[in-house]
Write a protein that binds this DNA or RNA. Structure first.
Lengths: 189, 189
DNA sequence: TAAGGTGAACTGTACGTTCAGTTCACTTGA
DNA sequence: TCAAGTGAACTGAACGTACAGTTCACCTTA
């Protein structure tokens, strides 16, 4: 690979920084490539040497921001750990970041070229976190061993994301708790 | 409201029909307003007299198609009924229609003007269906009365949608069964 | 004859591309 | 040690394209 000349690093950094700002200020619609170029003072030509498409830039910028905001909990109890992870994600999502997350996920569906970036910078990290928590929980015999970590991830986060995207109801902390509780314990009486 | 002159009805119908075809053939990206206009032989000017934006057209066309494809089951048992409903939706989603569904949901996030249509023509119908099944299940005491029908809907369909949108794993019938089973019974051992 | 529809041209926005020219970190050689 | 040279990386500005949505003069039919 390229030995990453200092100029490249600086340009990449400027772009990601400007993108994060724009995303915070006005969501994905505000993070136009022209706007990013203007604010970062990096030319579009250079930007497109580093990323294949607009979505990729936003995914990288946002993914790094989110990763920094959500640590991996360890309370010594599987249910609490998983619940805490969902709580962290939902607290993050309930704020203005949630909108950006939804927009980004949506953009990756509309523009498949960006989805590898989204997967790399966001999904894989979340999935790995849950996989670790799930393994701990399995070791402690606290969860159903028939269920894979992937299925658990989808069951835990899916409802959150679904509500976020359809926007039919506000995503408060109480709502998030109800969702994760129902997912953990099941719907049956 | 307009008394819906026969010409209006015909135009609307042509548009919805053409849109359904285009969605089937090439997904949402193929259902350009120009393409819809060309195929339906209804002018763009007329189209924009009936719908506020592109997403609205697609949502209406697709919603009607989906509603027709997914009946409300009644097997005399809540668990089976809910599972069956999720199965129907997932079978529908696992095929080429699933992609369109994801694209449409994505489009409504990117373009909020379309989301009322999406809600009206798709989400509300699904939500109403589950609400009815949920009430039946409550009457029979088969599900947790602490959980609302809305929460149940999100827990049942969220994982499916999440997987569909991120596309990290194929959505086979087995996968869908695993998801709905985990959602119904919970993750705990 | 008037409500509804047509068609074609037009505007605006934003993605992604291209290219001639510039900058800067580095070798090279005296 | 320092001027000259080299090439990779960046700039700026223009351009092509695609598509959403609008407008308007004209036609058609109940």
């Amino acid at each position: 690979m390229t030995p990453e000349h200092p100029r490249s690093l600086k340009a990449k950094d400027s772009v990601l920084c400007a993108t994060t700002e724009l995303l915070t200020e006005g969501g994905l619609p505000a993070a136009t490539v022209d706007a990013i170029s203007a604010r970062s003072r990096v030319s579009k030509a250079t930007i497109y040497k580093h990323w294949p498409c607009r979505t990729a830039i936003a995914a990288e910028a946002f993914g790094k921001q989110m990763a920094a905001a959500i640590p991996l909990p360890d309370r010594g109890n599987a249910v609490d750990d998983l619940t805490e992870q969902v709580r962290l994600v939902s607290a993050f999502s309930a704020g203005p970041h949630g909108t950006v997350f939804a927009q980004l996920l949506a953009a990756c569906v509309a523009d498949p070229a960006g989805s590898p970036y989204f997967r790399e910078y966001f999904l894989d990290a979340r999935r790995a976190a849950v996989a670790e928590l799930w393994q701990r929980a399995l070791d402690r015999g606290e969860v159903d061993p028939e269920i894979t970590a992937d299925t658990a991830t989808d069951v835990l986060f899916g409802p959150l994301i679904f509500r976020l995207m359809t926007g039919h109801q506000a995503l408060t902390q109480e709502q998030a708790d109800a969702l994760s509780s129902a997912a953990l314990r099941g719907l049956l009486s």
